[in-house]
Computed example of a mutant assay.
Amino acid sequence: MTEELKTQNTDNLFAIAKQFTLQGKVTDVQSLGSGNINDTFLVSLDSPEEQHFVLQRINTQVFRQPQLIMQNMRTFTEHIHKRLQNASLSRRWEVPRVLLTKDAQDHWRDADGEQRVGRVPRLEATANPEGSFWRAISFIEGAQSFDTMHDKSHAQEIGYALGMFHNLISDLPPEKLADTLEGFHITPLYLQHYEQVLAKTSPRQSPEVNYCLQFVSDRTNVAHVLENAKATGNLPLRLMHGDPKINNVMFDTVTQQAVSVIDLDTVKPGLVHYDIGDCLRSGCNLAGEETEQWESVSFDTDLCQGILQGYLSVAKAFLTENDYAYIYDAIRLIAFELGLRFFTDYLAGNVYFKVKHSEHNLARALVQFQLTQSIESQETTIRNIIQDMK
């Protein structure tokens, strides 16, 4: 959360929340979550029908066409709601709804923002509430998320959640959604950007920086594996979530079953393998992404087995033989890719991810690179797990 928004006038936040209030009165607005991109608030209402909703300010430095994000979200959430109405699920499953303003719009801009529609916002716009792009989505009541995995049954629920999400959008043609983040999860492009940044900077020499430099240099060939498979037709274009880390899965606070997948800004055409890899990358690192003890980070193969069991219990219906063949590559690639992105941002001066200190992205990169190394050292075990579940 930016310091400017921490101290932002409470009345202003209340006024923004009221734009989306069709019933009830806004009683409170509090900061919510710890996302690295958007600024998120929980709005409380005195309405008996809906007691809370989520208010977000979209980071238009990351999402340059926020209107397309909302168009996508309305398209696939409406599709999922129709699927759920016609399904006879034996357990709870929800998808967040897009809430409209009083004039039936799916977002709201202040006067300054309206003047800048269609233009690239100033860099400082991300820290300035004037000219912001706001949206509201329904809140999943009686649910919570976790930053790390608890046990294997928890892992199975994480996998089930991703499988359910993929299943519910598997019959929605990819061309129905706009690509709101061109180049996102295209690892060769991240590698190219890294090389451009590196050519323009003189990184501070340290054992950690030198380790990262060598780590990337030794794995440049890894970056192309999934994009090559897509180009040759071995992996089909589908719809993907884009950011299925474990804290984007909501669990029922009573049953402890997964009930929703949230953070839907990155849903777009792509490879489901990016989601599978990212889910396993984030779920099987018990130390978490923000640990300072990076050398102790490891990939837990028992949790890997649990996630894949849960995922395949729902996703077997649409996966192909080739899909299974590339699951290991996806797990290794996404850990490497995220480490590469963190390290690149560190070299560039921390311009993309929010940081708490100047070395934060370097520390994050070290965690992901250590995780990548742990995945590589257990390749045979991971491939055997995948093979046994086919």
Rank of each mutant, 00 (worst) to 15 (best):
E4S: 14
L5F: 15
T7V: 08
Q8M: 15
D11N: 13
I16D: 11
I16C: 10
F20N: 08
T21D: 07
Q23R: 13
T27Y: 03
I37W: 05
D46M: 02
S47F: 01
E49N: 12
E49I: 13
V54T: 09
L55N: 06
N59R: 04
T60R: 15
L68T: 11
S88P: 00
V95Q: 03
L100G: 05
D106N: 15
R109G: 02
D110N: 10
Q115V: 12
R116Y: 11
V117N: 08
P121A: 05
E124Q: 13
T126M: 15
G131Y: 02
A136G: 06
A136L: 07
I137A: 02
M149I: 15
D151E: 09
S153G: 05
S153Q: 15
H154L: 05
Q156G: 02
E157G: 11
E157Q: 15
F165K: 04
I169P: 04
S170D: 15
L177E: 08
T187W: 08
L189G: 06
Y194H: 12
E195S: 03
L198W: 09
A199M: 00
T201P: 02
P207A: 11
E208I: 10
N210K: 12
Y211A: 10
C212F: 03
C212N: 00
C212P: 00
Q214W: 04
R219M: 06
R219I: 02
N228T: 13
R238A: 13
L239R: 08
D243R: 00
I246N: 03
T253H: 11
Q257G: 04
T266W: 08
I276M: 08
L280A: 03
L280E: 05
E289D: 14
Q305H: 12
I307W: 01
Q309D: 15
Y311T: 01
S313L: 01
S313A: 14
L319K: 02
Y324L: 04
A325Q: 14
R341V: 06
D345C: 05
Y346M: 07
K354P: 09
V355C: 12
V355P: 06
E359Q: 14
A365R: 04
V367K: 03
T372W: 01
